[in-house]
Amino acid sequence: MSAKERILAKLGRSLAGTTPLADDYDEALVTAPWAYPPEQRIPRLRELLEAVHGETQLTTAADWPARVVEALAKRGIDELLIAPDTPHGQQFAGHVAEKATAIRLKAYDRPVEEWKDELFFNTPASLTGTLGGIAATGSLIMCPTTSEPRLMSLVPPLHIALLKASEVYDNLYTVLQAQAWAQGLPTNALLVSGPSKTADIQQTLAYGAHGPKELIVLILEDA
């Protein structure tokens, strides 16, 4: 017998004569305490994100590229990792070309193995979209894709994320329902709630553990 068969046989014997417990899932308990009037969703999300050192800005679908440029200039960063084949990547590239800003754009357009060194040690900032936000916990929803791979939101020290105001949900349960997660998940799905942090030394909170040191969320109020 294999280990699997032995384990399952043992567990099965222990359950002999019992019936599985019924599913008494209490939807109300994971939604009612975490429901907000629409006008409170964004303030709550901002409050929670800012409480953990996330920076949030209200902007618009037309203006956000200027905010990105500002944020980079403020930090003396002149390079940005973008996804050129996404609508927001194209919009930002267009903005940079039009304004002739001195920002160099980099694309994550080849397997990580081919440019790992540069990604790890020479890519100060990235820009990605999101699949929405969660007001209850101040979270961003992200499902990395071929255009915006997993490490794009993790390795660069500054991560700028775009969030459409219309895609801020009340709580995780509503997200799972609205986006039908159980029907099929990508290889990696993430909730991100702030820049990386740790309290492992004497319970003292420090930001920028292994992931981004800074997270800027640009909330597009008209999108």
Partner: peptide
């Protein structure tokens, strides 16, 4: 209320 990362790996 939640950790910084919730990482769901499905492959």
């Amino acid at each position: 209320p939640i950790t910084t990362y919730v990482n769901v790996i499905s492959g």
